[in-house]
Design a protein around this nucleic acid. Structure first.
Lengths: 225, 225
DNA sequence: ACCTGAACACCGTTCAAGT
DNA sequence: ACCTGAACACCGTTCAAGT
C-alpha cells in the first residue's frame, strides 16, 4: 500500500499524493481525451514535473488503470429484478450508460486489462438473469460476452465517429454518395438516410434483439448448415 | 490519380511509387502491428527516408487509409442465398473472418473513416437479407449496425486480449480469483472456467442469437417498461 | 523520501536546399 | 519532380544528483 505519511525518520515531506496524481489525470482525460493524457501533461496539471509522477505510479499504463479504478468506484450495484429479461436489459443498459458517460473509459477499457470490483455488478446481474431464464452457467457466460462485445463495439464506434466528424467529411460519406444502384441496390436506396440512422442511438433496440435471441433455446432456432 | 511516369519534361526519375510505399507499410503492419507503423519505420522498410514518403501520402492517416483500401481490394462479393437468414449469417461470418485475418485491420477500421467499395458487399447482403425477411429498410439498416457493433467489439477485444496476454497476468485475473461467493455468486461459480470460455471463439453462437432476435418482429417480443 | 534536470531514444511534420 | 538533412515540438522512461 502507498504510504500517506512519511515514515519514522528522515526524508522530505511529500508535496504530492497518489490521489493528487489520479485526480489530475482524470481532469486531463475528461477534458482532452486519453490520447492527450501524457505524463508531461498530467504533471503540468498537477503542478509538478513528469519525473515526479514516477514516484507514485510505475508507468503510464499503471496510471490508466488507477484512473479506471477511480472511475469504477462510483458504480453502484445494479438491482435484482423478478423478471430475468428485465434484469438483463437493465444491467446492460446501465453498463452502457457508465461507458458512454466518459468516452475515454471505453478506450482504456477495451484493453481488457482492468476489471475493478465495482464493475462486476454488471456481469453478475446479466449472468444471473440468463441462468434464471434457463441457460447453463457456461452458456450464460457466453451470452454475457456477446452482450459485452455488442456494447463495447457500439461505444467505440460512436466515440471514433464523433472524433472524425470534427476532422471533416469522411471517405465513407463519399463512397456512400457514389454508389451504383445496380451493384448495391439496398445501400443505394438507403444512402440518403444513412447518416440520419447512424446518428441515432439505437443501442436499446439491438440489445433487445440480442437478449431475445439469447433467451431462445438454441433447439428452437433454425440452424443453417 | 498518381502519375507513374515522369511528365513531359524535366524532373528526376522516381525511385519509389505509391504502391511501393503501401506495400512496405503493409509488411510492417502485418509483422509488427499498427502501433509500430511509424513513418520512419515504413521508410526504412521501403529503403528510403521518412521525408520521401510525404511525396506519396499527405500524412500518416492517409497512409493508413491506403492500407485499408489495399486490403479491401482482396474482398470478393458474398453470395446471395435463397434463405435470408442463411445469407445474413454467411455475410456476417465472412465480414468477421476478413477482419480477424489481420488484426491491424480492425484497429484502423474502428476509426470509421474508411469504407472502401469492395467491403460494401457485406452490408449489402446483410441488409438485403433483413429486408427480404420482412423488415423495413430503415429497420434493416439498424439491424446491420447492431451486427457491425457486435462484430467489431468481438474483434477488438480479442486483439487487445491477445496483446495483453503477452504482457503477463492481468488485473482481471486477480480480481476474478479473489471473488467473494456471497457477493458475486454467479461470477464466483464461473471463475475457474472463465479463462477457458473467454479463450473460445463463440462469435457464431452470439451472431446466431442476435440474428434470431433481429428477425423476430418486435411485436412478438416481450417489451419491458 | 521526495523531487529535479539532463539525457536517451523515439515520434510526425515542415522547410529550405540539392539534383 | 523527386529526394534529402536539419530542425521543431513533442513522446515515455532512466539515472545521477540534490535537499
Amino acid at each position: 500500500m502507498a504510504q500517506r505519511q512519511s515514515p519514522g525518520r528522515g526524508g522530505r515531506p511529500p508535496r504530492l499524493s497518489r490521489d493528487d496524481v489520479v485526480a489530475a489525470a482524470r481532469r486531463v482525460a475528461a477534458r482532452d481525451g486519453v490520447d492527450v493524457l501524457t505524463m508531461r501533461r498530467v504533471a503540468q496539471e498537477a503542478g509538478t514535473t513528469a519525473m515526479a509522477l514516477y514516484h507514485y505510479v510505475r508507468n503510464r499504463e499503471e496510471l490508466l488503470l488507477l484512473l479506471l479504478d477511480h472511475y469504477a468506484a462510483g458504480i453502484t450495484s445494479s438491482p435484482e429484478r423478478a423478471d430475468p429479461r428485465t434484469q438483463i436489459i437493465d444491467a446492460a443498459t446501465a453498463m452502457h450508460a457508465a461507458l458512454a458517460a466518459e468516452p475515454w473509459v471505453a478506450e482504456v477499457l477495451s484493453s481488457d486489462r482492468l476489471l475493478s470490483r465495482a464493475a462486476l455488478w454488471y456481469p453478475e446481474r446479466i449472468i444471473d438473469g440468463l441462468v434464471r431464464a434457463g441457460r447453463t452457467p457456461v452458456a450464460a457466460l457466453r451470452g454475457y460476452r456477446a452482450i459485452w462485445y455488442y456494447t463495447v463495439g457500439e461505444i467505440l464506434i460512436r466515440a471514433h465517429a464523433a472524433r472524425s466528424r470534427e476532422a471533416g467529411p469522411t471517405v465513407r460519406d463519399q463512397v456512400l454518395a457514389d454508389l451504383e444502384p445496380t451493384e448495391f441496390p439496398r445501400l443505394a436506396g438507403l444512402s440518403p438516410r444513412w447518416a440520419e440512422v447512424a446518428g441515432q442511438d439505437h443501442f436499446r433496440s439491438g440489445l433487445t434483439a440480442l437478449v431475445h435471441g439469447l433467451l431462445q433455446p438454441e433447439s428452437d432456432r433454425p440452424n443453417p448448415p
